[in-house]
Amino acid sequence: MNLSDMPSLLGRLYERLRTAGFTVTSEQSGGMGGLEVILSGSIAGSTGSVPAEVDMSSDRGHSVVTVRLGEMEHWIIPGVWASYLDSIPVDIDPERATEFLGNRLSDMADAYLADDDIESKLVAIGEQFMRARSAAYEF
């Protein structure tokens, strides 16, 4: 993959994940400059390791990063993980999302290993955020 095709904030996260042993498992690019890269690896927590996938997508100036751990079916944005871990509002800023992933992967692994119901809790946080966000745009 050519890193010059990737926005710089995703490029920094890509390099950090590759350095941590993640490998590219899927890569797609579109005709209008869209790019999606999925990396897979293992995250070491304090009580064990968890398989992880990180999906980085960018299209026409918009970037999104999502993550799933272990046996999770849903891809979760970093802002939802941060909300779960730190009891803060969901933040969807791409810069903070990539910074969060660069610094908190082990915390995510620990939470995943400690909470058998984490996926449903993360999904509920994301759904609540989206309901509130869409209500803000109702006329």
Score class of each variant (00 low, 15 high):
Ser46His: 02
Ser46Gly: 00
Ser46Ile: 01
Ser46Arg: 13
Thr47Arg: 10
Thr47Lys: 12
Gly48Cys: 03
Ser49Val: 14
Ser49Cys: 08
Val50Arg: 06
Ala52Ser: 13
Ala52Gly: 09
Ala52Thr: 08
Glu53Met: 11
Glu53Gly: 01
Glu53Asn: 10
Val54Asn: 07
Asp55Ala: 09
Asp55Val: 05
Met56Ala: 09
Ser57Tyr: 04
Ser57Arg: 07
Ser57Ala: 07
Asp59Val: 00
Asp59Ile: 06
Asp59Trp: 10
Gly61Lys: 03
Ser63Thr: 15
Ser63Asn: 05
Val64Gln: 05
Val64Pro: 01
Val64Thr: 11
Val65Ile: 15
Val65Pro: 10
Thr66Trp: 04
Thr66Tyr: 08
Thr66Gln: 11
Thr66Ile: 05
Val67Asp: 12
Leu69Pro: 14
Glu71Ser: 13
Glu71Lys: 15
Glu71Ile: 14
Met72Ser: 14
Glu73Thr: 12
Trp75Leu: 06
Trp75Glu: 14
Trp75Cys: 10
Trp75Arg: 14
Ile76Phe: 13
Ile77Asn: 14
Ile77Cys: 03
Ile77Trp: 09
Ile77Arg: 15
Pro78Tyr: 14
Pro78Leu: 10
Pro78Val: 05
Gly79Thr: 02
Trp81Leu: 15
Tyr84Asn: 03
Leu85His: 03
Ser87Met: 08
Ser87Pro: 05
Ser87Val: 04
Ile88Cys: 14
Ile88Ser: 01
Val90Ile: 05
Asp91Ile: 07
Asp93Gln: 01
Glu95Asn: 15
Glu95Met: 05
Arg96Asn: 10
Arg96Gly: 02
Ala97Val: 02
Glu99Tyr: 15
Leu101Pro: 12
Leu101Trp: 12
Gly102Ile: 09
Asn103His: 15
Asn103Thr: 06
Arg104Ser: 08
Leu105Met: 12
Asp107Val: 05
Ala109Ser: 06
Ala109Asn: 02
Ala111Phe: 03
Ala111Asp: 13
Ala111His: 02
Ala111Thr: 09
Leu113Trp: 10
Ala114Cys: 01
Ala114Tyr: 02
Asp115Gly: 04
Asp115Ser: 06
Asp116Tyr: 00
Asp116Arg: 09
Asp117Trp: 10
Ile118Gly: 03
Glu119Trp: 04
Glu119Met: 11
Glu119Cys: 13
Ser120Asp: 06
Lys121Trp: 06
Lys121Val: 04
